Amino acid sequence: MLLLRSFIVLWLCGFVQFAQATQPCVQDDLNQPVCVKQAQRVLVLAPHLTEIVDFVGGLDRVIAVDGSSNFPAAVNSLPKLPNPWVLGAESILARKPDLVLVWQSGISADVVVQLRKAGMPVFVSEPKTVAQVATTMQRIALLLGTQSTAYPKVDQWLARFEQLSNRFKGRAVVPVFYQVWRQPLMTLGGQHVVSEVIGLCGGRNVFSDLTNLAAQVSVEGVLKRNPAVLLSSGSVEDHRALLKQWAPWPGLNAVQRSHVYTVPNDLLVRNGPRLIDAAEQVCDHIEQARRQEP
């Protein structure tokens, strides 16, 4: 993790020199240049990006957000747009933003192309690791002109991950199954940031060998891999449903030892600043199971 932080600093140092020569420019997650000087009218079309903008100190620049953005509470006073998949380039341009932030998996690629042809700076985000979340924060801060206060916050954020890594380094590995969906039964593969978080806690995603970010699996497959922890995201009601779902298999290690957990909605499934809060909860759950392992 220390090497990760050093890499991010070096990457940004080289980049900022270029940015200062003209105007702030970054490469988005499609490796496309995005240039704007201290954006003042920002349109944000993904919940994790809304949270990132707030984290780096730019929420006062936001003119509208997508309908799913609900954190922090202040975003609920902002205009909310329909699902980005149904938004056309014309409706986005009509709001006269000077920067548009979008999630690659949550918007039509054709709309992005049309916006760029119209000269609109568009930052396309698809962070898949803790490091990529950190650089997303830093790149957006640079476009907003808030880097002087945002960069130290990002560094502190990464330091919390480093502390978790150091805390659980060398401890017994705990097999974990993360459930995305019940029917069909879905999980996450080894390339997803949730798998990275589990590993950070000294756990092991039992389906880390899957190359897809998400994949359908069978109950038999889960039973065969016999996780010591069953983990999902959801509400208290979702947790009750998870317990009921797996109760018919009392021989499953996680069920037998009562290590079936849910992390509150939106914490673990949004690749933004609250990912560290989710990681700390995941680590606590894995540690409880570790202490009861024979």
Rank of each mutant, 00 (worst) to 15 (best):
L3Y: 11
S6Q: 15
V9C: 13
L10D: 13
Q17G: 09
Q20L: 15
C25R: 10
C25Y: 09
L30D: 07
L30C: 07
Q32F: 08
K37Y: 14
Q40W: 10
L43K: 07
A46T: 11
H48M: 03
E51Q: 12
E51V: 11
V53D: 13
F55W: 08
I63T: 04
D66W: 08
D66H: 06
G67N: 04
G67Y: 15
S68L: 15
V75P: 05
L81I: 12
G88D: 14
G88Y: 08
A89S: 10
L93P: 05
A94G: 10
P97F: 02
L99V: 04
L99D: 00
Q104G: 06
I107V: 14
I107A: 05
S108K: 13
A109M: 15
A109T: 15
V112M: 01
L115S: 11
K117F: 09
G119V: 08
P121D: 02
V122F: 03
E126W: 02
K128M: 10
A131N: 07
V133S: 00
T136Y: 04
Q138D: 15
L144K: 03
Q147Y: 11
Q147S: 13
P152S: 06
K153A: 13
V154A: 10
Q156S: 15
W157H: 07
F161L: 09
S165Q: 12
S165H: 14
S165M: 08
S165P: 02
R167T: 15
A172M: 09
V173G: 11
P175V: 08
W181P: 01
T187Q: 05
L188S: 06
H192D: 12
E196Y: 08
I198T: 09
G199C: 11
R204T: 03
V206M: 02
D209R: 04
N212W: 03
A214M: 07
A214L: 01
S218G: 12
K224M: 13
K224S: 12
N226E: 07
A228G: 05
S233V: 12
H239Q: 14
H239K: 14
L243I: 03
A247W: 02
P250I: 02
G251A: 14
T262Q: 04
N265F: 10
L267E: 00
V269L: 09
D277M: 01
A278T: 00
A279M: 00
E280A: 04
Q281D: 04
C283P: 06
C283R: 12
H285P: 11
E287P: 06
R290I: 08
Q292N: 14
